[in-house]
Design a protein around this nucleic acid. Structure first.
Lengths: 230, 230
DNA sequence: AATTAAAAACCGACCTGACTGATTAAATCA
DNA sequence: TGATTTAATCAGTCAGGTCGGTTTTTAATT
């Protein structure tokens, strides 16, 4: 649970490691250790149950040491949320990037859907979702999230655009497909305590994939033309 | 904000009001006042920011009085969640019930989707959603919600069944349609801070309604048969 | 019907425990 | 040595829960 003292993280780096002083490196390391610990606490305890003491303990530093790096809890949370945001982007990009290039067409799209589903069920997204809910009654948190929200949405759009170039060209349909996929899967991911979850999810993913293929099949279904604003 | 003392709620009833003693009535009234106040606090402050003092103040009761009715915060929360559960059921049933009988066929189904959308955007569901998230790291809350979850799902199923009898007969397709609608709309409802929300929602609801009609059009699309397990 | 005692509902001061933020001393590195 | 990082401790705040006492309702008794 609490990685008390990770010796590897505390090893002494070379005297002159690229013009950065040993102190600065050490400082940056403990800073990252604290932020990692904060994310971990978010996962294990939930956002509202996180205290500065628990984060410090989990990071293996004293509260005083932490207060040196983050003078107040608010600043710690802010830094942790930005850190989480970066990790989320990286997580999503990595999952998409791991789709083998050999997959093409419908199989590739399906793999993308599956990757997104796995991403949604990961700890990082769970925490992010929790933060989103908490932000409803927490103006400070809301301000942080709103800015990162747009950056993230934009990044996902670009990420998907480079992956599915054949879809990007369809413009409006591309956005519809993204929205349908996103909300349906996010809805499923949020409902963690439904009965017979696995079977229903598999079935819905099948259904979703079929709909996506349908959307991009030009003139496929009579009902689709209506939803293209062009 | 805080309905300090609602005189109407404190009026003295007739001496013998249906074999229930005045004391019991008074007790039940303040109990309900407290529970209403608790729900209100959930809405205004968020689950995690609710304190017993705030609930008592909002209900216009002293802390001591509240402790008399609910000896601990846990018991208060339990009662409030059950109370919320009842109100949710009533809210949903009412919204569906308000659909004019003159509407039939696709128009009726569309009205049902719209009613569900309004329901999802109401305060009550927002609070329920928040509780669901909080329950991830709160075993007590989780236990309460898990039991009410099943009751609720079952009730919605029956409610929709009586409304859309022509769908119920289709068995498996009915469940698919319910899941697709539910998760897609819940996903949309959860994403409160997306850009250009209204337009995207309208479009997705249009799309969803078309898909539902398609699902129940026997042999409509080639892709649907796969998802019927019969 | 009036009196009175018991019970229920209600009130608010107090206690405990946890969390945050500040201050001081010690240890470590330049 | 001087400066920076870490450790330990303290005070202030606020939460939930306890407890003695007060008022209101009920029931028993005369």
């Amino acid at each position: 649970m609490a990685a008390k003292k990770d010796p590897a993280a505390k090893r002494r780096p070379t005297e002159r490691d690229g013009d950065i002083s040993w102190q600065a490196q050490k400082s940056a390391m403990t800073r990252d250790r604290i932020l990692d610990a904060a994310i971990n606490c978010f996962i294990e305890l939930g956002y509202t149950n996180v205290t500065t003491a628990k984060v410090a303990q989990s990071a293996g530093v004293s509260r005083g040491a932490m207060l040196h790096h983050f003078p107040s809890k608010t600043e710690l949370i802010q830094a942790a949320v930005e850190y989480l945001h970066d990790k989320l982007l990286e997580d999503y990009t990595r999952r998409i990037g791991e789709i083998p290039a050999s997959l093409t067409g419908a199989a590739r799209r399906r793999a993308g859907i599956r990757a997104y589903w796995d991403y949604l069920n990961g700890d990082l997204f769970t925490v992010y979702n929790e933060l989103s809910f908490a932000s409803r009654t927490d103006p400070e948190l809301r301000a942080i999230l709103e800015s990162s929200q747009q950056v993230f949405e934009q990044h996902v759009l670009e990420c998907n655009g480079t992956l599915f170039t054949e879809w990007l060209a369809t413009g409006d349909r591309f956005l519809l497909a993204m929205d349908v996929s996103r909300f349906m899967m996010e809805g499923m991911a949020s409902s963690r305590l439904m009965t017979d979850r696995e079977a229903r999810v598999e079935r819905l993913i099948d259904y979703l994939c079929d709909r996506l293929e349908e959307i991009f099949k030009e003139g496929g279904s009579t009902a689709i033309g209506r939803h293209s604003s062009t």
